[in-house]
C-alpha cells in the first residue's frame, strides 16, 4: 500500500510575526517544526507502515526551510519526503495549497491512504485536508480518533463528533484527518536522526507539477487578506487596583448576587 502524509511546517516559536502588508506570516529566521497535530497523522502512518509492506511518503508545501520539518518525519520513520517549493507558491490560501498538493498526488499517484492532521496550530482552519480530498475525488473522513482496522479492502475508523462516535469502513483510496486522540507521536531515535541528516529531500516546483501560475500561490488564491488590525478597545473596562480593589470586589459581588439568590431559594 502507498501511504501519504500531508505535513505542514510551522515556526518553531510561540511568537509569530505577521507581514503588515499582506497579512501573511513572516517565517524567516525561525526554525520550523512539524505542525503538532500533523504528528498524529504521521504516527498513524508509521504504525500502519510497520505492520506490513507499505511505502510511506510525506509531503509539504513551503519554503526551503521546511526541509527541517521533513527531515524530522524521516527521522521518525517516513521512507521519503517531498517538498513542494517555489517562490510562486508563496501566499497560497487553503484552496491554492490543496490545488498544489493534489497536483503532486495526481502526478505521483495513486496513493491508497492519505493522512492529515485535524488542523494547523498557526492557521487553525483545518481546510486543506478535505479540500485536497474533494479535488482528488476520494472519500474523506475527518476527526478520526481511532484507527480500528487496516484491512486489505479498506480501513475501519472511529470519528468523534458532537453527538457521539461513528465507526466507518471505507475502501481505498481514502483521505483521513485525525485528531490528537488517535495516538501519541513517537520521538525520533538517534539512528533515525542520523539517517535523516543525509537523506535526500525531493523538491518539486510549479513547473514540475505542471501548474499554471494563475492557479497557485497568492495569484491562485480566491481569498485575500485585506486588512489586519489589532482589535480596538471594544469595551472600556473600569479598572480597580490597589485600595480600590475592595470596591471592585463589591461590584462583582453585586453582579453575581442575583444568581446566588436564585440558587439558594
Amino acid at each position: 500500500m502507498r501511504i501519504l502524509v500531508l505535513l505542514k511546517q510551522v515556526p518553531d516559536t510561540d511568537e509569530v510575526k505577521l507581514d503588515p502588508e499582506n497579512g501573511t506570516m513572516i517565517r524567516e529566521g525561525v526554525g520550523t517544526v512539524i505542525n503538532p497535530l500533523d504528528l498524529h497523522a504521521l504516527e498513524s502512518a508509521i504504525r500502519i507502515k510497520e505492520s506490513g509492506e507499505h511505502e510511506l511518503t510525506v509531503v509539504s508545501m513551503g519554503p526551503p526551510a521546511a526541509e527541517e520539518a521533513l527531515r524530522e518525519a524521516i527521522a521518525m520513520g517516513a521512507d521519503r519526503a517531498v517538498l513542494l517549493t517555489d517562490r510562486k507558491f508563496a501566499g497560497a490560501d487553503t484552496w491554492a495549497t490543496a490545488k498544489t498538493l493534489s497536483a503532486m498526488i495526481g502526478l505521483e499517484g495513486p496513493y491508497d491512504l492519505i493522512l492529515a492532521g485535524e488542523k494547523a496550530t498557526d492557521g487553525e482552519t483545518g481546510q486543506v485536508g478535505p479540500e485536497t480530498g474533494a479535488m482528488l475525488g476520494v472519500p474523506v473522513i475527518t476527526y478520526v480518533s481511532r484507527i480500528i482496522e487496516v484491512g486489505e479492502d479498506g480501513i475501519v475508523v472511529e470519528r468523534e463528533v458532537e453527538d457521539g462516535r461513528e465507526t466507518w469502513k471505507v475502501p481505498y483510496p481514502v483521505l483521513l484527518s485525525v485528531t490528537k486522540n488517535v495516538n501519541e507521536p513517537r520521538l525520533p531515535t538517534l539512528k533515525g536522526k542520523k539517517k535523516a541528516r543525509n537523506a535526500n529531500i525531493e523538491k518539486m516546483g510549479s513547473e514540475a507539477l505542471g501548474l499554471e501560475p494563475s492557479t497557485i500561490g497568492l495569484m491562485g488564491s480566491p481569498t485575500r487578506v485585506v486588512k489586519i488590525n489589532t482589535p480596538k478597545l471594544s469595551r472600556q473596562a473600569k479598572l480597580y487596583e490597589g485600595s480600590e480593589l475592595i470596591e471592585g470586589i463589591a461590584r462583582l459581588k453585586a453582579l453575581l448576587k442575583p444568581y446566588l439568590e436564585v440558587n439558594h431559594e
Partner: peptide
C-alpha cells in the same frame, strides 16, 4: 489571526 492581538479581514 495568530501572533498577537490581530484580526484579519478576508475577502473573496
Amino acid at each position: 489571526a495568530i501572533g498577537g492581538n490581530i484580526m484579519a479581514t478576508i475577502k473573496t
